[in-house]
């Protein structure tokens, strides 16, 4: 394929622009990494730095020696696996029927669902609800109340709608049931969007902490983010506790600990993305269309 001069110029511009953008967006994260490796004095120095003056592991030592943190990781992984499986299953089961224009009362179902995106009973009724179902202080309180993310489900539904009806028809003629069509035809065609919604769900569960703080009472059931919040609170200067002796003051700098917790909590979730990226390849559907 021959490119015109204009196209070449655009390509050059494109590469330069994207490189700059990547540099700008990586900047805050880089700052966090620098701070996480800083000594307390360095972390508090006002100024622009591109590199830590000296490397200190104090922040990481403080975070990683916390006895609750590994437990927190475990609880978070359980939550993510369970929560994402539930969300994906429920979302697919809901999105697929709603993607069919011939589904009876489709608009009413959709309306009822969209309605919940804007109106909710609020925190206290939700808490009472979870309690009356005896879900509190269990992982179910963290995964069931957000069993479907309506927005994600609607994105999924719209993607299903864009799959040409003929593909499904041909499967139906071969005698496949609705479930078989969904599992054998529709889902394989939807891998990129399933990956996207899956990633959203994983990240949402990974980052959530407020529901944990509300519903979970035993600290050994705390998820990672809740544990990290507490580590940060612990690292705050202790001088708000009245009448402490001078020795009480924590020698760990809050800013350093805060940054270390971000790195510790973000690294694992960062590794998920490149894995998902490989499914974003143009033309997934082409092969199946031809076949």
């Amino acid at each position: 394929m021959k490119r015109t001069n204009g196209e070449k110029a655009y390509a050059v511009f494109n590469y330069i622009f994207l490189t700059l953008l990547a540099l700008i967006t990586v900047y805050p994260f880089w700052q966090v990494i620098i701070t996480s490796f800083s000594t307390a004095a360095e972390a508090n120095r006002i100024g622009f730095k591109m590199w830590p003056a000296e490397i200190s592991w104090e922040g990481y030592k403080n975070v990683l020696t916390n006895q609750n943190i590994w437990n927190g990781y475990l609880n978070t992984i359980i939550r993510v696996l369970l929560g994402t499986s539930i969300e994906m299953t429920l979302s697919i089961l809901t999105a697929y029927p709603l993607s069919k224009k011939y589904l009876p009362h489709r608009n009413i179902f959709t309306m009822l669902i969209v309605f919940t995106m804007f109106f909710s009973g609020g925190m206290i009724p939700s808490y009472l609800n979870v309690r009356s179902l005896h879900l509190d202080n269990t992982v179910w309180a963290l995964v069931l109340p957000i069993g479907i993310n309506t927005f994600n489900m609607l994105i999924l539904r719209n993607f299903f709608m864009s799959i040409p009806e003929e593909i499904e028809e041909s499967a139906k003629i071969d005698g496949a049931s609705a479930v078989q069509v969904l599992v054998q035809v529709v889902l394989p065609l939807s891998v990129p969007i399933l990956m996207t919604v899956g990633l959203w769900s994983i990240v949402a569960h990974w980052n959530a902490w407020l529901d944990c703080v509300i519903y979970i009472r035993d600290s050994n059931k705390y998820v990672l983010q809740a544990v990290l919040r507490k580590i940060i609170i612990d690292a705050a200067p202790q001088f708000d506790n009245m009448n402490t002796t001078a020795q009480d003051i924590s020698q760990i700098d809050t800013e350093v600990v805060k940054s270390a917790t971000i790195v510790v909590s973000t690294l694992p979730i960062m590794l998920v993305y490149p894995f998902i990226q490989k499914y974003f390849v143009t033309g997934v559907m082409v092969g199946s269309l031809k076949g």
């Binding site: 307390a40 002796t245 001078a246 020795q247 003051i249």
Partner: peptide
Amino acid sequence: PFIEGSTGSVNWSSFHQM
């Protein structure tokens, strides 16, 4: 700091650190 081994208040210790 008021006694041996203490670092003083946060403002004291941070100021001297920096």
